[in-house]
């Protein structure tokens, strides 16, 4: 199997964005204590402009950052096609913003003062979510080499259909089904139906 662009198994990185250097350094020390790598940014723009590996991770952002509101930041993530889960640390009284953020797909909202254990749990959750997102992307990437007909047949195979039934359902010959299946397995590098199934189910 060729290594794809998306590598869900790479070490996770937490991106901390907070202009309060004291708090940021302390948070780094905390998150590193549960063996997650950390990169720090004093400003949102610094983060957006820095090169990033495509591995799993999450963004921990203090939403009371000057220069850009939390919502603007989420818009930017969409524009920059960054799909890292976001944990927003917010002060009291930002509930309307929280609901907007949740609708916009931000993973989590942690109200300050932050319970450190809760925060670490949320970071772990966010990293796990990031891995799932990446796995999904990796799968899609792999499956993208298949034609629509190959993908259709492979899906039916994985669901447990026999060649004959599939051929009947699709109104093609068994041989045609067999040929597409062989072609798909070859393209994906799967040696057995079980491996093929694993590739399609992988998250």
């Amino acid at each position: 199997m060729k290594p794809g662009k998306y590598t869900a198994v790479a070490p996770a990185i937490a991106y901390l964005i907070d202009d309060d250097a004291d708090v940021r350094h302390a948070l780094r020390w905390l998150i590193e204590s549960v063996q997650i790598d950390v990169r720090e940014f004093g400003r949102v723009r610094e983060f957006l402009e820095s090169p990033r590996p495509d591995g799993p991770g999450c963004i921990v952002l203090d939403v009371r950052m000057p220069g850009m509101s939390g919502m603007e930041f989420l818009d930017h993530l969409a524009t920059f096609k960054i799909d890292l889960p976001v944990i927003m640390l917010s002060g009291h009284g930002t509930v309307p913003m929280a609901s907007r953020a949740l609708r916009a797909g931000a993973v989590d909202f942690v109200e300050k003062p932050v319970n450190e254990q809760l925060l670490l749990d949320r970071v772990h959750e966010a990293v796990a979510k990031s891995r799932r997102i990446l796995a999904g992307k990796a799968r899609e990437e792999r499956l993208s080499v298949l034609t629509d007909r190959e993908l259709e047949i492979v899906r039916l195979v994985v669901e447990g259909g026999h060649n004959k039934d599939i051929a009947r359902a699709l109104g093609v010959s068994s041989r045609t089904v067999e040929n597409h299946r062989a072609q798909a397995m070859h393209k994906l590098g799967a040696r057995s139906a079980a491996e093929l199934a694993a590739m399609l189910m992988e998250k």
Partner: peptide, 25 residues
């Protein structure tokens, strides 16, 4: 006052993060 509470929370959070980080290690 909300802002002051926030101001005060910053160093307190930093203390908690620091000590928790140390405890975990």
């Amino acid at each position: 006052s909300a802002g002051l509470a926030h101001e005060l929370n910053q160093p307190l959070a930093a203390i908690i993060y620091t000590l928790t980080g140390a405890a975990n290690r």
